[in-house]
Each structure stands twice: as structure tokens, then as C-alpha cells.
Design a protein around this nucleic acid. Sequence first.
DNA 1: TATAAATCATAGTCTGAGGCTATCAATTAT
DNA 2: ATAATTGATAGCCTCAGACTATGATTTATA
Lengths: 298, 298
Amino acid sequence: MEFSQLRYFEAVARLGNVTKAAHEQHIAQPSMSKALQALEQEVGVQLFDRVGRGVELSDAGALLLPYARRVLAEIQAARQALQARADLTVGHVSLGVTPTVGTRLIPQALATFNRRYQGIQLELHEAGASELVELLNAGVVDLAIVSALVHGVESTTLLSEPLVVVVSQQHRFAQRQSVLASELRDEGFIVFPQGYELRNYTLQLCEQAGFAPRIVLDGGEMDTVVSLVAAGLGVAVVPQLAIDQRIGLHALAIADGGLQRTLRLIRHSQRQPSPAAAALYRVLHEWVSQHYAQASIG
Amino acid sequence: MEFSQLRYFEAVARLGNVTKAAHEQHIAQPSMSKALQALEQEVGVQLFDRVGRGVELSDAGALLLPYARRVLAEIQAARQALQARADLTVGHVSLGVTPTVGTRLIPQALATFNRRYQGIQLELHEAGASELVELLNAGVVDLAIVSALVHGVESTTLLSEPLVVVVSQQHRFAQRQSVLASELRDEGFIVFPQGYELRNYTLQLCEQAGFAPRIVLDGGEMDTVVSLVAAGLGVAVVPQLAIDQRIGLHALAIADGGLQRTLRLIRHSQRQPSPAAAALYRVLHEWVSQHYAQASIG
DNA sequence: TATAAATCATAGTCTGAGGCTATCAATTAT
DNA sequence: ATAATTGATAGCCTCAGACTATGATTTATA
């Protein structure tokens, strides 16, 4: 039972005429006759009664017809669904991010994406970098933004943002524009939890300056950390962009070291991105290049 | 998009493995690979991601899969429906009869049929012989029982029943076993309506005996006619079988003439009977041969 | 880390399903 | 009667879809 046979069968049943159906289906009349015979042979019953000149649907044909129509409708629906997916009028894309990435980039870029592709459903997964790679390999997320260098996946640099030392506006360095890492030897540090890249960056900065940081508070998300800094509890190393919109804080460039956090957009190297995932990929790069032209290294 | 392609696609999606799916579908592995590629080419998207050793359903594949499964289910359902029809576990058959036929034959024969083929729906159409032929040609009824000879359709003799003159038990002939047609010259006749074969038989009998019958009452179905005869209103010519179960009546054989009414089972000569129609055909003949062996001429 | 096993893709061959044209047979309209 | 319409048959041809053999790549294992 081939699809062409069902299509031909439906045409003959609808038109009640082999010749006309053959024309409609763009085949020769004998081919149509043969196709019907083949279908009848396969299902083992006569589908049409050859009555006089002309044919008409038999009892069995009338039984088969609705099934045939449903099959043809399903196939058409499948084609349309795939087409809609390619046209980006429907779809789904899942983005993974590490927790500190979201602050400004994600909401605005996703809002842009959503305005442009109304029918595509967005999904956001927040997790650590290594877990994101697992989600990517498992196919749970299509793309992910991480700050660490990861292996085994295809990655592009989304943007590089400078890391700054942030202090309260009452702090002794509050009037300065930059510090040397070594000047932070006596400061109390507020650091991100285990596993966060920003924690590693911080520890690395101190180590290179030749001291082990005195940790005032360990753990806490971005919001908490910057609030604690504003309250004068200590200093912290954060991305420049994370404090753009905050008041009561002062950012100090790090004169030596010049640390930067690089956000990478990663995707599965072997999996073909869906049209929706490819679109999100484009929108993210586009949004960054328009809003962070100065920060993006490319 | 061929049926086999969807079947293969579903197998690979289910098993996540081209080789195993090829085994299951009884084709060689390269044939499976090629079939998948052909399907992907046709729909214009990748349906599987070839990730490492093994394949897994892509975004587009996941979209297509439910459609494919519905198509396969519909085709299976269609096959089962046709099979059930052939097995006589489901079906439909429509029988046409002329009004005076029904009295004993139809109810009992149809009851037998229904006991044997529980799933098959019966439909009964009562109409005149010429209308029944039209219904037969239009495919509304599968079979019909008529008493007249009709042309252009395939007919078999179901049974021949003798026509008798029926009188009331108070009638002057009530003690006799038979009469000559000419003896009925002075009787009042109750006749069936225009178009009924029994009316024609009656008039024909009188004409051959050399007189025109005096018609007391014209029109009326079988029940009415025999009731009127029992009430002494007149005589009538009816089939022997029609009055078997009645009291207050006396039947007289017609010594000369010896008229018989032949019931014929007709079907369309070009249309292939459905299994249900063929079964009803068999049951009717079978029932007649078992219950009217003496009456059936064959 | 080298070797074996597993898995999918490619190359090349062959057969038959399904297309075509030409024509016949049967029915219906003129 | 004659012409037109319609479906079936015969005979031919092409390519889709099957096969075997083999290659390339990844993963498991000694």
C-alpha cells in the first residue's frame, strides 16, 4: 500500500472516473488503472465496481476511503508543520546560562528575539557550566552561554567584559579609578560559591598578586554580593556590566592583571541546530554587537 | 514520501539505531541509511543527528514522528477494517422486497441471518418491483426479492408458491378442495392495488377463463385483503403461504390454470457483492431450501 | 594506548514497480 | 449505424530501492 496508490484511489473515488482522475494526478490512464488494480490486489478486495462505462466505489472502497483521506490529510499536515518550523512561525528553542550571565544580556536579547519570532517558544535553563555542557549533549538545551572555556563543543566568543573591583562609596578607594591587585591584600573579600567562574577569577587575581584573600563571606548570588559590598562588608570582583545599573557602588579598574571575563556561546558540534536555535544564535550575536560594540572582541 | 520510508523512519526513531531498525524491518543497513536520506532530502530537513556512533532524533524528526505514527496507525486500522469486513464480523447489507413477500419468509430468514452474523447490520427496503430494480442499480440495496420477472439484473428463483383462491368459511365453495377458474365468474373479487404482481395474476386468471372480474374492492395490503375475504366481502387470489397461519379462511386450488407466483432473488449483474451481501444471498437460499423444500422448484 | 567492535555512509550492481504509448473492448450518446 | 467515451491489456523503458562489499569514525576493551 503506497501513498501514491492511496492518492490515486481517493482521486478516482472523488471523481468517479479513472480517466479524469489520471489527468488530475498527472499520470496516464493505463497507469491509473494499473495502480488501482495493484491496490485492490494488495487489500484483497475490489474497491470499485466497473459498471458500464465508468467506475463506482464499492462497499469495500467506501470503507477504505475515509482511512485514505485521513492518511493523506496527516501527510499534508506533516509537511505543513515542517514548513512552519523552517519558516520560524512555530518552534522551540532552549537556552542554558550560568547564573551570573543573566543580569542584563539575557532579558533584553530574549525580548528582542521574542518580538521578532512571535511563534517560537523560549526556554531558559540556569545551571553551572559543566552541567550546561551535559544538557547540551543530552539535547535539552540548544545553546548555552558560559564564562568558562569548555571542551568538546563548538563555541564562539559572545563578548568580553572587564572584571572590576567593586567597593562601597564609603570605601577608602572610592575616589580612585583603578588599583593594583597587590593593594587589595588587606581587604575583606566577598566571593561567589564553589564552582562559579567568578570565584576562580577572584582567587586567581589574588594568587598572581602574591597573597591569599581574606574571605569575609563565601557564597551568594550576584544580587547578594553587590548588596553586601554596598553595605561596606567587603570588596568583590565582578563583571563591569553587572553593576552598570546599581547605585551606592564604585568600580575600580585593575591596573595590573587586567582580567576579563569572556562569555562564550556554545552549541553542540555534531547536532544540526533547529531553525529556531540558529535564529537565536544570530540574534544573540547581533544584539551583543549592537549594544556592546566596545566590549565585544569578537 | 513513501509509506515504507515512514515505517523505516519510525523504526529508527524508536530504536535509535539504524542497524537494529534495518534488522527489524528486514532490509539491509545501507538500504535503511539511504531511505532515511531520501526522506530527509524530500522534507528538506535533517531528521536525525548523526552523533558519534549512533543517531538520535532531531528537532524536526521529533516534530514529524507523531504524524508518521498516526499515518501508520491509520493504515493498520484500514487493513483491519477491510479484514473484519471480509470475515463478516462487521458489515452492512440492504435487502429490497415487494410488500407481499415479507409475511413469513423475510422475518424468519433475516432472524437466522442475524443470529449467524451478529455484527452485520441489516436494512430492509419495501418497494415495488421496478423501483427495487432502480434501487439495486443505484447501489442502495444489495439484493431484492420480487415476484415479477425483471430484466437487466441477475436473478435466481428463490421459490415458487402456488396461488390459491381464498374464500371465507361460510362461502358456498368452503367444502371444496378446488375450483375451475370459470366457476368464479359470478364472484366478487378483492384485488391488490395497481402495480402489484398479484393484481396482474388475478386479472390474467379471469381473462384466460373468459370473463372480466367483478371487483368489489380495489387496493389494500395483504393483511387487509385476507381480512376482507374472511368477513365474506369477496374472494381473492393470494399465495398459499400467505394464509398458512390464518383462521376463518378456506383455500381452493385452481384446477385449471394452476397459477404459481415465483419469488426471484435478484442482484446487480456487474457489481461485486460485498461479503455480507453474499452471505445473505446464501442464507436466503439455504433457509428456503430447508423450510420450503416441497415448494421450491429451484 | 593499541586493538577490536560497533555503527553509519558510500560505491557499485541488479531487479521490478510504476511510468509511458498504442491499441482493444465495451458502453453510451448522437 | 456511427462516433465518442471509458476502462483494460500488451509491451516497453527507466529509476527507486533493494543488495553486497567496503570505508570512516567512534567507542569499548585488553
